[in-house]
Amino acid sequence: MHCAISGEVPEQPVVSKKSGILYEKRLIERHISEYGKCPITGEPLTMDDIVPVKAGKIVKPRTVQTASIPGMLGMFQNEWDGLMLSNFALEQQLHTARQELSHALYQHDAACRVIARLKKERDEARSLLAQAERQVPMYASEAVTENASVLSNGKRAAEDDDMGQPGKRVRPGISANIITELTDCNATLSQQRKKRQIPPTLAPIGGLERYTQLSSHPLHKTSKPGYLIY
C-alpha cells in the first residue's frame, strides 16, 4: 500500500470514505485544511470522511543504494563530504568569532587604560586646585598686611617731614627759583611735543571710543569689588 500523494508507504494510513483511496494522515489533513477537497477526485472532502486504517508495524523497504556494497560506499562518501563541508564552515565561524572576541578585548583594555589615565589626571587636578585654594587666602592676607604697613610707614614719614622742630609744624612751600625752572622746562617740553609727529600705528580717538568692556575678573575679594591691592 502506498500513499496517493507521496507514493511511499504511509506511517499512519487513512482511507477516504468517498473514494476509498489511501493517504498519509498528515499529508491529507494538511491538504484538506488548505483546499477542502480530495486531491485525486477533486470532490469536497472533510476530516469526518477520513477513516484510519489499523495495520501492523510497517517496515520501509531499503533504497536501491543500500542494496549493494558500491551503493553503500557512495552513500558513505556523500555523508563524509557533507561532514567535511560542515566542519569547514564551523571552523570558519570559530575563526571569525575569535577575531571578534580579540578585537572586543583589545577595545576593552584600551578603554580601561584611558579611564585610568583620566582618573589620575582628575585626581591631580583636584589636588592642585585644593592647594591653590589654600594658598590664595594666605597670599591675600600677606598683601593686605604689606599694604597696611607701607601706608602706615608713608603716613609716618609724611608726618615726620611736616614736623620741623618738636611740637612745631613747618608749612611746606616752593621757592621762586624752583617755580621759574619748572616753568622753563614745561615750555621746552611743550614745544618738543608739538613738533612730534603722530605715528600711523597709533589707534584713532574714534576707535578708542568704540571699545567696550566685556567682563571684569577681580583676583582678590576686597572691600571694594573690582579693585586689587598691591
Rank of each mutant, 00 (worst) to 15 (best):
Q93F: 07
Q65C: 15
R126C: 03
K195S: 04
A176V: 15
D160A: 02
A157C: 01
S175K: 13
A148S: 14
R30P: 00
E91R: 14
H2I: 13
V51Y: 04
R193L: 10
L189N: 10
E142D: 10
V150N: 09
L101K: 08
D81N: 12
Q77C: 07
Q107M: 14
H95K: 08
L118Q: 08
I198T: 10
I178W: 14
D109R: 12
E11V: 13
R196N: 03
V114L: 11
A4L: 15
A4P: 04
I58C: 11
I21E: 03
G154C: 07
V170F: 14
G20T: 02
L214G: 12
P166L: 12
I32F: 04
Q77A: 11
M72Y: 13
R26M: 14
K120Y: 01
C185V: 03
M72P: 00
M72W: 05
V59C: 13
V64N: 05
S33T: 07
G226Q: 10
K119M: 04
R62P: 08
R210N: 09
Y211L: 06
N87M: 14
N78K: 10
P70D: 11
R98G: 03
Y35G: 01
Y227Q: 03
S6R: 15
Q192H: 09
K18S: 03
L129E: 08
Y106I: 15
M138T: 12
R26G: 06
E100F: 03
L85E: 11
V51D: 01
K221H: 03
G206S: 06
Q65G: 11
C38P: 01
A4N: 04
G56W: 06
V15L: 11
S175M: 15
M138P: 02
T201K: 12
Y139H: 11
R26P: 00
R171H: 06
Q135K: 11
L22F: 04
E100Q: 09
L219R: 08
R98M: 13
V51F: 03
L129A: 07
G7R: 13
E24N: 02
I115P: 00
R122F: 09
E34V: 14
L101S: 10
A55T: 11
A158Q: 03
Y106R: 07
E11K: 12
Q191I: 07
R171S: 13
A187P: 05
L208E: 09
H217Y: 08
A104W: 04
D81E: 06
F76H: 02
S152R: 08
I229W: 12
A176F: 15
I28N: 00
T222L: 09
R169P: 07
R117I: 05
L45H: 01
I50E: 00
K119C: 04
A132T: 15
E24V: 05
L118V: 12
A110T: 07
Q92H: 14
G20W: 08
P52H: 02
L22S: 00
I28K: 00
E146D: 11
T222D: 01
K120N: 00
A158V: 10
L101D: 09
L73Y: 02
L214D: 10
V136C: 13
S102W: 14
I179K: 09
N153D: 02
Y139W: 10
R30W: 01
T66V: 09
Y227E: 14
R117G: 00
E34Y: 14
A130D: 09
A116D: 00
K194L: 05
N177P: 06
T180Y: 07
R126L: 05
N186T: 12
